[in-house]
Amino acid sequence: MIFLRTLAAELLKLRRTLAFWMILIAPGVVILLNFFMFHERSAYYIKQNRPLWDALQKNSFVFWGILMLPLYLTLQTALLSALEHSEDRWRNLLAMPVPRWALYWAKLAIPCAMLLCSSAIMSFGTLLNGVVLRILKPELQFPAPLPWAAAWHDTWVASVTALLLLSVQHWVSLRFSSFAASASFGICATITGAILINSQKYGPWWPWCLPAQLMSAKPEAVAHALWYSAIGALVVAVLGTIEFWRREIRA
């Protein structure tokens, strides 16, 4: 009950924020880029002779998983935390009769929900891309049944594999009051992820590489990414809660 109240209070604060619109903007940019890519290079995709829906979805999620999603979550967590860091609003928020664990988890639940919404927009926007391309570029010949199952699969796999990086980024953004510090941390981690993505040794363990595992042809790699991300996110969130519980709000 107290958690739901805290969550409702956090949701109220999203009004008129950039963070709220980013739910739509981040996947929207990728969807549009992908649309133009298929629209302008239709001959290339016809020549490739690959299953078109698969190519369209993979194209979208490579860009989303490796670059856009980690950067999006970096920005979201930093923007949400800045609401409290700015003018040291913690001092009055933490003087409210709400346990700190509820605040920490409500603040974590918001970007988690945003992640799920954006991933869903990404998946189903990609399907919409195919439908529009079917009309504008009939030569591409997108097959008739829409791959709904793949879209659902992409949505939840992208969301769960990003939980660990989100949990880490959430703690970092709450811990450090500087927006630049939190954003820099996320950007550096994302760039490191882009470098490590093809490493068999480090890639599967670097949280910022996990969303890209969605593209992996090996089901065991996807399963590893899902479990590692989910359990890791939980561990980081518990440690973050303990740190947040003990934190002092100094003048």
Binding site: R5, A9, L12, K13, R15, T17, R89, N92, M96, P97
Partner: peptide, 25 residues
């Protein structure tokens, strides 16, 4: 409590700020 300057959310209205506090209290 009002600790030093009031810590209000500038992007919300006065009523919304109070509603936020209402929910938490």
């Amino acid at each position: 409590a009002l600790v030093e300057a009031p810590s209000l959310y500038p992007h919300l209205t006065g009523e919304e700020n109070l509603r936020h506090a209402c929910i938490l209290k």
